[in-house]
Nucleic acid binder design. Sequence first.
DNA 1: CGAAAGAACTTACTCCCAGTAAGTTACTCC
DNA 2: GGAGTAACTTACTGGGAGTAAGTTCTTTCG
Lengths: 216, 216
Amino acid sequence: MTSTTPPIPPGAPSGDAPVRRKRDRAAREREILDAAERIFGDHGYQGTSMDEIAAQVGVSKPLIYQYYGSKDGLFLACLSRLRAKLLDAVSEAVLAAPDAEQAMYAGFVAWFQFLDDHPRSWSVIVDEGMLSAGPAAQAADEVRADFVELIATMVRLNAPSTTDEEEIQIVAQTISGATERLAIWRTRLELPPSPEKTARTLQDLLWQGLANLQQP
Amino acid sequence: MTSTTPPIPPGAPSGDAPVRRKRDRAAREREILDAAERIFGDHGYQGTSMDEIAAQVGVSKPLIYQYYGSKDGLFLACLSRLRAKLLDAVSEAVLAAPDAEQAMYAGFVAWFQFLDDHPRSWSVIVDEGMLSAGPAAQAADEVRADFVELIATMVRLNAPSTTDEEEIQIVAQTISGATERLAIWRTRLELPPSPEKTARTLQDLLWQGLANLQQP
DNA sequence: CGAAAGAACTTACTCCCAGTAAGTTACTCC
DNA sequence: GGAGTAACTTACTGGGAGTAAGTTCTTTCG
């Protein structure tokens, strides 16, 4: 099970290999974070115990507490790492597009594609990141806030004459909520529609309405 | 604190008032369910302990387990009751409308209005009902499935020539996800946009795209 | 009436898991 | 090689979910 770091027997090994029972902190932290991301992704936040993570890494529980403070802290660390990756993927796709319409489509595709590429990691954010209590929930909200802001910016660029900030917020929340839900829905299908088809349908559904925002 | 049923001192009371230390089962079940709904709504699923509910009702914990089986079971019972109320409210609004466009708008308004009227109850479903693990999550999924089906039906009626069931599912998931997210978002604002404005903006955003579904 | 039966209800646990105190082991730098 | 420190562990506490086994009230039937 502990494929990464086989436990070293306490009885002293042969006397020349350094054996490095103690690794440097950064490496251990990464090791713990990797395991946590995987296990959280598999069993969810609630279904994961710190003891399990510790066992998988081949380390004792207090060490994890020393590095990450709490279960929430560890979860939050997983989340931050994923968040950066995800936001990068989508932003890059959006910025590379020649116009607003294609930017939106590209953003959608990137979003769904990322999901397909990192299914388990992703469920950390979407499936379980929705807890409303605790610091973890706050972090999940920050992830969402990032995307809402990204979407709102795009909407403003696309419909410059719209000054009703409240409407823009409604639209941005709508799109963010829709993509999130579609993401979850797709993961549960054995044969989900392709990222492209999903993105195109969403685009078709929203684009006309977005264009009309400026002249109501 | 236990305002509803003050604990009766074990020392035998005066000998004529019946005192009914034991109530009949149905009444107790309702009492427990009411308290659970309130406390789950206040502190969330995780933040609520069975001991707390038992204390509020003025009853011992095993009694609750006898009636509801588990924490999940109790939560699920709360959810079912709310789900019926909510689905009724929205369905009624939809069915009372003269045409598809107004039906959709009325459905949105009913949805957001219900939220405003039952804020705490609602957070049981939306804020915490999203756990992906356990039977509670399955129940939350059923709530969503009901609405997705309702929306899908409306879409089919509105765009009869569309035969691509996959596209209809995408659209229904989109709308369901959007309304759910908007619901959560609104509860967190001190001065949210009115149900009507939220519904109208959403309607404006989606209606044109829906109409185009039939002739792509 | 009074005992039998069966509900409603409780005390007193078990187990599991997040989190911690205090100590031990390996590495490092003089 | 010894002092100092970072990495790490054992062995706990506390709290909450869930349970076994019993106790008290109420109804029913002789």
